[in-house]
Amino acid sequence: MVSTGIPLDTATIISTALEGILFGFSVLMFMGTMWASIHYKRDANRPIALAAILLLILSTAHLIVDIIRLQDGFVKYRDIFPGGPVAFFQDISQPTFVTKNLIYALQTMIGDGVVIYRCYVVWQSVRVIILPIMLWCGSSVAALIAPYYASQATGGNVYTNQTGQWITALFTLTLSTNLISSGLLVYRIWTVERKISQNRATNGTMMPIVHVLVDAAILYSAALVTILICFICANNAQYIMLDMIMPIISIAFYMVLIRLTPWKTTPNFLPMAYSGEIERRSSQRYSMKPSQVHVSEWTQNDGLEEEVKTET
């Protein structure tokens, strides 16, 4: 299969530049997430906090490898590599190509794992996440095997090599994992919201949680669909999207935390862990509480109006 679209060397320059821009946004959002967690004194959930730090580290490492790859292709091996920069970037057995794909594999495993974790702590049921876990295991295997076949490649490009089959499987499985897990998560919160809406004593609502989760899922899924379409069509634009999705994973993760942490109507545990006790605690939060009722009664005594107050 012959690659189409923009030249590979041009795609590499564009992808690294756009990745750098998005990486800057992800760093700012990471800092905002940490500041919001400290400022609003929310108790950080250790697995989620660890995932946030790992995503930042992996995104940084991926960008560094891409910069090194640019330097190798356009400077170091420009005149000595057969075919020039285009052939260099097309060679999937290059150590920098294998390394960046391993980093992407870890980033994807963490990002999808966090979505499944959120789904579990909201539902508090292992049965609900059986299918997402199976899909996550499949995508993890594909994500780790693809770089291996790339390192063993002796010719051809990513579209003709066996690596391409595993990459296609990876994109398909991770997209399915994200859509199913996010759908289950949103459905659970939405059903809880419906149950407590009739007994709510205040104007608080959990629908902003649904909106944020849907936004994050759409952002990530749209990037995955674009990559999958470009890869199936053997379009070099997939290299651009593949580099961009590294910070996009982090951004989708941080946007959920940073937008929910300052939300005062959200239980303290929700932005970090999405606890499965939403229904119980929300019912307690909006349950009818005993209140004092003041009843005023006016009586007339000897021509004077007298107010009698009774309290119940």
Rank of each mutant, 00 (worst) to 15 (best):
61 A>R: 01
235 N>Q: 05
251 I>C: 08
133 I>S: 13
155 G>V: 06
81 F>N: 14
16 T>L: 07
186 V>W: 02
231 F>E: 09
173 L>K: 06
184 L>Y: 12
278 I>P: 11
90 Q>C: 05
93 S>H: 13
76 K>Q: 14
306 E>L: 02
138 G>Y: 02
151 S>I: 01
171 F>S: 06
255 M>N: 05
211 H>R: 15
160 T>H: 12
241 M>L: 08
81 F>Q: 12
67 I>D: 10
103 I>P: 06
248 I>P: 06
33 T>V: 00
243 D>P: 06
106 L>K: 03
170 L>F: 15
289 K>T: 09
91 D>F: 02
95 P>S: 00
160 T>G: 15
13 I>L: 13
86 V>W: 11
212 V>E: 06
74 F>P: 14
285 R>F: 03
244 M>Y: 04
90 Q>A: 12
102 L>R: 06
101 N>A: 03
73 G>C: 10
233 C>K: 15
189 I>F: 07
215 D>M: 14
297 E>N: 04
3 S>T: 06
243 D>V: 00
57 I>K: 02
249 I>F: 13
157 N>Q: 14
52 A>S: 13
142 A>H: 05
164 G>L: 04
51 A>F: 02
246 M>W: 07
36 A>C: 06
40 Y>C: 01
74 F>K: 09
282 S>F: 07
25 F>K: 01
71 Q>E: 12
284 Q>A: 14
291 S>V: 09
110 I>D: 05
1 M>K: 01
167 I>A: 05
296 S>D: 07
157 N>A: 12
109 M>Y: 07
235 N>F: 01
113 G>E: 06
23 F>M: 08
301 N>F: 00
61 A>C: 10
251 I>T: 10
212 V>F: 07
215 D>W: 13
68 I>N: 15
235 N>D: 14
148 Y>A: 09
190 W>I: 03
73 G>K: 10
249 I>Q: 13
145 I>D: 11
58 L>V: 03
125 S>C: 01
16 T>Q: 10
254 Y>E: 10
62 H>E: 07
184 L>D: 01
72 D>Y: 15
177 T>M: 10
251 I>F: 08
231 F>P: 13
201 A>S: 15
179 L>C: 12
219 L>F: 05
137 C>I: 15
20 G>K: 03
38 I>G: 03
212 V>Q: 11
15 S>Y: 06
97 F>L: 04
3 S>C: 01
18 L>S: 04
67 I>K: 09
118 R>M: 07
277 E>V: 08
20 G>E: 05
268 N>A: 13
101 N>D: 11
123 W>H: 12
160 T>I: 13
181 S>M: 04
238 Q>D: 11
279 E>S: 11
277 E>L: 05
12 T>C: 08
276 G>S: 08
274 Y>H: 08
212 V>W: 10
16 T>I: 08
74 F>R: 09
208 P>H: 03
